[in-house]
Design a protein around this nucleic acid. Structure first.
Lengths: 110, 110
DNA sequence: GGGATCGTCAACCAAATGGTTGAATGTCTA
DNA sequence: TAGACATTCAACCATTTGGTTGACGATCCC
């Protein structure tokens, strides 16, 4: 089944894929542009994007020869609901979130 | 680093481990009792518990010959904050959460 | 002490994962 | 039409993962 917790959490477990999601938070991007900051091959990034797509975390739309990737934030909702059942967390702290993004990008883009 | 998003999401990606966390939501349990509803070996469950412990999602404490496992809900907080940055989700729906638990237990305990 | 119980360790195995390279496909543009 | 560009496919490789079994170290209790 698509959007299962299995595939969503597995997709999120990889730092490269989380970095890609963070990048897409800014704007939609073409595959080549997604791949640019990473040191791995374009084919590897293509595989990562396929995994994110199968998990429902992003959507890909081909226009001409360019395939655009955009965030699909609803897919994380199931997982988020599941997680929040385990504790009452403080209201979302967006400052903390932005610090996460910075350190994540620093450590995963290499 | 312990409690990194890598290890937390990887730990959550396995249905057996999520089922274990759901069971521990009810009460602390000994390793043998955790293993009881599953069809796999005790050694396999022991490995799963080690992965959950390394991720910081549970804590294990040995009293006598029995090792007690208890939920450590704070560890999910980082991951939850990270996820919520990607969208404004509705306030937590605990009914939906309980339905998740039921279907998850049905499909992962075999 | 001796036997049952609790849990882990070690060695092993099959399958999945994350990466590579090179060829192939499709599309734009001069 | 030819070439450049965007992306994926296919084959391959090393490592990790999730499971098994059997032996082992503690601990409880008679």
């Amino acid at each position: 089944m698509a959007n299962s917790l299995d595939t969503i959490f597995a997709a999120l477990a990889d730092p490269t894929r989380r970095a890609i999601l963070s990048m897409l938070l800014e704007d939609d991007m073409a595959v080549t542009d997604v791949a640019e900051p990473f040191e791995m091959s374009l084919a590897a990034i293509s595989k990562h994007l396929m995994i994110l797509t199968r998990a429902g975390l992003i959507a890909q739309e081909k226009r001409g020869r360019v395939k655009w990737c955009k965030l699909e934030p609803d897919a994380m909702k199931n997982a988020s609901v599941w997680m929040q059942g385990f504790g009452q967390f403080e209201p979302v702290n967006l400052d903390a979130f932005e610090r996460f993004l910075e350190t994540e990008l620093d450590t995963s883009i290499e």
